[in-house]
Design a protein around this nucleic acid. Structure first.
Length: 356
DNA sequence: TCTGGGGTCCTAGGACCC
DNA sequence: TCTGGGGTCCTAGGACCC
């Protein structure tokens, strides 16, 4: 979906259409969640600190985050996608892969999807079509907003060869810098890079992984059912906190929130993690694994507070969080048949996939 | 410029076991 | 007395993604 949160907000704030607009956690330490295309022209983008965003664009309109609303919008979008295929892999609220490998005319199906999504939700999306998830995803980025782009093994290097390697998923700032250091800037350079040199710099796994992605190789079946593996809550204080009571109080509140959600999902986990971020943005975690899964708020709070003790935070605390990992849901535990242990649905062999 | 919140996956070291 | 190889689990940190 193009500028999803902003687009959803515009449905109820039509007067803001055409204006530089962001959905953001406003406040002293807020960042931009989503920026309208008008705002992007001012250099305002996701994850940009609001202080900077306002400096770059003084007339910026700011709307607070309303996740409930976006979740409802997302549901409707995904519902629409399922009209086109039983095999839909949802990736976050605004992205999904749709398996169109059974369609003889995937390109016209993609156009139909765009039309149906617009009809049903009045929202605009961009679609990428490709023989695997990697190509579909990248294709979806190449013609935004309201676009449709097709990548194939044939046009791959012609279309993206000259683009920076960071176009590839999994190649972020750190990996980009390391690639630069060995003289690799573009997708094509990475695609043709010396295997041995990549392995020396990145190790056998990551090295070969990078090279194959640069050659357009990626997964060609979809995972339609995802099982959550961890759940967490964290909060950044408006100002750094040193008061222990305030830290433990916050920890208990966050722990309760995690447990409520675990309860709602009939899930529980064995590993409890406390996260803190200190002044200077250094982030640390401490965790403990229990004998048995829990979602008991008292247990989670008690362990979290004990873990917090182990930091004895010497510096003011900017962020604190609690997580529970190693989740098992009760259904999976009671039914130990192979049927319940098969969350991954094998898709069709290589065929066109669509990414929204 | 001064950096949210919720996730996933990977790596590396240490403990422990056979 | 000084020492292999392989496996699993746990912990901490980091990169990355939406």
């Amino acid at each position: 979906m193009d500028a999803f949160y902003v687009s959803v907000e515009l449905l109820r704030h039509p007067e803001l259409r055409g204006k530089p607009l962001v959905v953001a956690h406003d406040g002293p330490r807020g960042v931009v969640t989503t920026a309208s295309y008008e705002a992007r022209r001012f250099g305002v983008h996701s994850a940009l600190p609001m202080v900077t965003a306002r400096r770059r664009c003084p007339q910026l309109q700011v709307l607070p985050v309303d996740m409930q609303l976006y979740r409802r919008g997302s549901e409707k979008v995904m519902q629409t996608l399922r009209e086109f295929s039983d095999t839909v892999e949802v990736v976050g609220l605004d992205e999904a892969y749709v398996d169109l490998s059974r369609s003889p005319v995937p390109q016209s199906r993609a156009l139909e999807i765009k039309r149906r999504v617009r009809e049903e939700t009045r929202l605009v999306c961009s679609i990428g079509l490709g023989p695997n998830k990697l190509m579909a995803k990248i294709a979806s980025d190449l013609d935004k907003p309201d676009g449709l782009f097709v990548l194939t093994a044939r046009n791959w290097l012609e279309a993206v060869g000259d683009r920076p390697a960071s176009l590839l998923p999994g190649v972020g700032p750190k990996t980009s810098a390391r690639l630069s250091a060995i003289g690799i800037e573009t997708v094509a350079e990475l695609a043709g890079a010396d295997r041995a040199q990549l392995e020396r710099s990145f190790g056998p796994r990551q090295g070969e992984g990078l090279r194959s992605r640069a050659n357009g190789v990626g997964p060609d079946s979809l995972t339609t059912v995802r099982t959550r593996k961890s759940e967490s809550r964290e909060t950044t204080f408006p100002e750094d906190v040193t008061d222990r009571e305030q830290l433990t109080g916050t920890l208990v509140r966050l722990g309760r929130s995690v447990c409520e959600s675990l309860e709602a999902h009939q899930s529980a986990g064995r590993t409890i993690t406390v996260k803190i971020r200190l002044r200077g943005f250094r982030t640390h975690t401490r965790s403990r694994t229990l004998e048995a899964p829990t979602r008991d708020p008292d247990t989670v709070s008690r362990v979290a507070c004990e873990l917090l003790e182990r930091f004895d935070p010497p510096d003011p605390v900017r962020l604190i969080g609690v997580g529970v990992a190693g989740l098992e849901d009760e259904e999976a535990e009671h039914a130990n048949g192979p049927a319940s242990a098969a969350p991954v649905v094998e898709g069709e062999p290589a065929g066109p996939l669509t990414l929204l």
